[in-house]
Write a protein that binds this DNA or RNA. Structure first.
Lengths: 207, 207
DNA sequence: GTTTGTGAATAGTTTCACAGCA
DNA sequence: TGCTGTGAAACTATTCACAAAC
């Protein structure tokens, strides 16, 4: 292994590999080949091996990958090993679904705080989390929460993002259908559900 | 404009441009430059112009783009102009949020049917849609619904996808954390929310 | 014999810089 | 003069094929 800038696409795929490794491991599998794991995940085996090669030797030639150690490696690279707490802003339909969502635990995430602007929701509990007034976002710095999930309507997204940045948040998952401007040190990943649906008709033969 | 295979990345960005054009148009803007529209969306102006160039002349040199005509063009390319009806499978937390989600309308989508396996949910209405028994999925062919939204737990995802394919569905939005195997003619776009969150810590300085 | 790790070849995408049109 | 549309250059990512490791 030599020095290489790691491709963004490789980083995007690492959680896929991690998900597969965790899944097989839970089923009692101890070791597996790149061929098998990649097939299970719908990727190419050489793509997976190439991706791993940027970080060193994960497997054993002639044998394959030891899942437990693979999981440890990927968790370390993605900095998931310490666990992370995130703050949700917006406790509407989508926010409530995210609070109840079991998948975050797989990667060591916990939604540790939730905020809304609606007085009727503030003080109530959803999925074990008390909903706080959005005005109290600044408390995140003291609580050492530096990941935010933006689940508010588009019109409020930039204001919420600004408040999160002010509160010390350095990474955001944005579910609003808006581009969010942030300082360079802050990373925003946008999930625009309707937009993803919108490119489906292009690919399917006239319905 | 010459012949070119259209890059997948271009197709991925077209809905972004469409969203921006619709947004500005609703605000009363009639025409705009690539510089302005791109800045609003957080992309580069030459990227946008290059993307458009694969499909012909959208704008007027010295003037810019007429939004209404730009919207029409992109809608045509993405085959959104006719409108589309989609079937939702899984009326849990996420499914209910999707049923209530206002964003689909922007691109001419409507969730026209919803299915669940839980007898207690079947027959009830959510956001104006009656939840049907998942056993009735096969009726989709007759109803001319060929887009599916998979919002079931991972363990059920492949079975649901198989049933959707059998019912004539050719495009799916998959919210389950699983790779779904389908015939080549069917297109699956997977949105794995936890996975997207999982690559955030890699990019942000140690929290 | 099997499977990994990777240099080299190929393919795809972004970026630039500017000719040409309004 | 202002802005689009696009070839060509630069960059990034995928794919292949096989030597080395077990």
């Amino acid at each position: 292994m030599r020095y290489h800038k790691i491709p963004d696409e490789t980083i995007r795929r690492l959680p896929v590999y991690l998900r597969g490794a965790i899944h097989l491991s839970r089923q009692g599998v101890e070791s597996t080949s790149s061929e098998h794991l990649a097939g299970f995940l719908g990727v190419k085996s050489w793509q997976m091996r190439k991706d791993f090669s940027y970080f060193g030797d994960f497997g054993t030639p002639g044998v394959g990958y030891h899942l437990e150690s693979l999981i440890r490696h990927i968790n370390r690279i993605l900095r998931l090993d310490a666990g992370h707490r995130a703050a949700l802003v917006g406790a509407g339909n989508l926010g409530a679904a995210l609070l109840a969502f079991p998948g975050f635990g797989t990667y060591g995430f916990e939604i540790a705080a939730a905020f809304d602007i609606d007085k009727r929701k503030i003080g109530r509990k959803r999925s074990g989390v008390v909903i706080e007034d959005v005005a109290r976002l600044r408390s995140l710095r003291k609580r050492k929460i530096y990941l935010g999930i933006v689940a508010v309507p588009g019109g409020a997204a930039q204001d919420v993002a600004d408040a999160l940045v002010k509160a010390g948040v350095t990474g955001m998952l944005n579910f609003s259908p808006r581009y969010i401007a942030v300082p360079r040190r802050v990373k925003v990943i946008t999930i625009d559900i309707a937009m993803d649906l919108a490119r489906l008709p292009y690919y399917v033969p006239a319905g």
